Simulated scan of single mutants.
Amino acid sequence: MRHTDFRERMAEEFGRLRAEMLAEDHVMSELGGRTVDEALEAGFSPKQVWLALCNTFEVPASRR
Rank of each mutant, 00 (worst) to 15 (best):
M1S: 08
M1I: 12
R2W: 08
R2G: 09
T4V: 07
T4A: 14
T4N: 11
T4F: 03
T4Q: 14
D5E: 15
F6D: 02
R7D: 13
R7G: 01
E8H: 10
R9I: 01
R9W: 14
R9N: 13
M10T: 03
M10D: 10
M10S: 04
A11P: 06
E12I: 05
E12M: 11
E13C: 14
E13I: 08
F14L: 10
F14T: 05
R16D: 07
L17F: 00
L17Q: 07
R18P: 00
R18H: 01
A19E: 10
A19R: 09
E20Y: 01
E20L: 10
E20H: 03
E20C: 00
M21F: 04
M21T: 07
L22W: 10
L22S: 02
L22I: 15
L22M: 14
A23D: 05
D25N: 11
D25C: 02
H26I: 02
H26T: 05
H26F: 01
V27G: 00
V27D: 12
M28A: 05
M28W: 04
S29D: 14
E30P: 06
E30H: 05
E30S: 15
L31D: 12
L31E: 06
G32L: 04
G33W: 07
G33C: 13
R34I: 00
V36S: 12
V36W: 10
D37A: 15
D37V: 01
D37I: 04
D37W: 02
E38P: 08
A39F: 08
L40V: 10
L40G: 06
E41P: 00
E41V: 08
A42D: 11
A42W: 03
A42G: 09
F44G: 01
F44E: 10
F44M: 09
P46L: 07
P46N: 12
P46Q: 13
P46K: 08
P46D: 11
K47R: 15
K47D: 15
K47E: 11
Q48I: 00
Q48V: 05
Q48W: 03
V49I: 13
V49L: 12
V49H: 08
V49N: 11
V49G: 13
W50A: 12
L51Q: 10
L51W: 05
L51R: 14
A52T: 09
A52N: 01
L53I: 01
C54K: 03
N55G: 14
T56C: 10
T56P: 01
F57T: 01
F57N: 13
F57G: 03
E58C: 04
E58I: 00
E58P: 00
E58K: 06
V59N: 02
P60F: 08
P60M: 06
A61N: 02
A61S: 04
A61K: 09
S62V: 07
S62E: 08
R63C: 04
R63Y: 09
R63E: 09
R63W: 05
R63H: 14
R64H: 09
